[in-house]
Design a protein around this nucleic acid. Structure first.
Lengths: 214, 214
DNA sequence: TGCTTTCAATCAATCGTTTGATTAACATTG
DNA sequence: CAATGTTAATCAAACGATTGATTGAAAGCA
């Protein structure tokens, strides 16, 4: 799944890149196969040839996203946190990396937009991505929170707390049209992502500190 | 806008209700006018007659959402918070009301789903709803936070902090397919909404307490 | 040659919209 | 009061356009 060897190339890769962009921007149903083919500089029939149809191309986009983001996660795989302080630092680092990737990186824009739409539709792509990406990531963060605060790693409280932490990151991306208006920002770039990351990091430390005192 | 007098009725109202449901569940582009008409128990031509076309019906759905939710906000209009403690209590009340409405109420399900899709598409409906709903709501919460902590109400820090607070609420609704899986919940009902609200309220108090101490 | 890939052309199906007829309720007449 | 005109609303039917998918030929390469 994370094997870079089975990365699509040629026309198939062009089609996935084009579909990822258009699906993310306009949605699956609103994107026509002809539009995808034009953007990929190929013929409409190539979609059926390589992926069996439009729905197959959608699934291929899903596995491609899992492959690419899976690579990012693997690259961020750090050793076990030995102390509460180390766990806290590692959580802040992950949070900052997430904000930078989700809200600040232009190259990941198509990926994120596509995934957000798939989550909203709760389609077959989500099934595939949840097990390989979201669940392990969440579980890992739960373990860090447990190390930092002494909570039980897989308790309901811990899992909810972690969602409230990482959920904030995704909200700033999902609600970007709203956030940028209210903040008076021209767009969501690296500079704005840094402001957001600072705020979320401060919140994280405040929550941990509160737990340490009780 | 919030006037209950101009509430649509008859066929027009049926069409809006049907469209709200289908647009929210399947998306605007994936929903056909015939499907809407069938669900509203009327003819396809009624859409063009009452709203000028499919796009007009979409806008009508937007204003209808603003009208209904605007009513909820007006009902929750409380007097100015006189003390930091009162402001804190009022913020918790609003947060709990939001979670209950967004994640727990079944009657609001169509409304929320529709709005989330409109935000994602950043379409004309969002323009209309932002000014009448989101901005005033956010501004109000900023004032409460300022009263509770002594921050400046319209500073960038305050606005970001408020987004990180209310954003959590929306995330739990947007990411419901993910959250329910990881939590092992069958769905997002009132019971689950209560657990989420408890967590967010605890976070709120922790963040305020931290500010009071510094 | 044999195999994979791409292409223009075409398919039936479905899309949003338009049309003209029909109905019912009300106002305007003689 | 009865007849007529007016209007808003709904309907079945059909419109042209576009959809995803398919076809068989052409092209590229080993």
């Amino acid at each position: 799944m994370t094997d870079p060897a089975n990365a699509p190339e040629g026309t198939a890769a062009d089609l996935i890149a084009a579909a990822l962009h258009l699906f993310g921007r306009k949605g699956f149903a609103a994107t026509s196969t002809r539009e995808i083919a034009t953007r990929a500089a190929t013929n409409v029939a190539s979609i059926a040839y390589h992926f069996g149809g439009k729905e197959g191309l959608r699934r291929a986009c899903g596995t491609e996203v899992a492959r690419r983001i899976g690579g990012v996660i693997a690259a961020a795989a750090l050793p076990e946190a030995p102390s509460p302080e180390a766990a806290e630092r590692q959580m802040e680092a992950i949070l900052r990396a997430m904000v930078g990737f989700v809200a600040g990186a232009r190259e990941a824009d198509d990926l994120i937009a596509f995934m957000l739409r798939e989550v909203a539709e709760n389609g077959p792509v989500l099934d595939a991505v949840y097990g390989t990406m979201i669940e392990p990531m969440h579980r890992r963060f739960c373990a860090l929170w447990a190390t930092a605060t002494g909570w039980e790693a897989e308790s309901e409280d811990t899992r909810l707390m972690v969602f409230s932490l990482v959920g904030q990151v995704l909200y700033f991306r999902i609600g970007a049209p709203i956030v940028t208006r209210r903040m008076g920002w021209p767009a969501l770039g690296p500079a704005e992502a840094a402001r957001i990351a600072d705020r979320l990091a401060a919140n994280l430390h405040a929550l941990i500190e509160r737990e340490r005192m009780s």
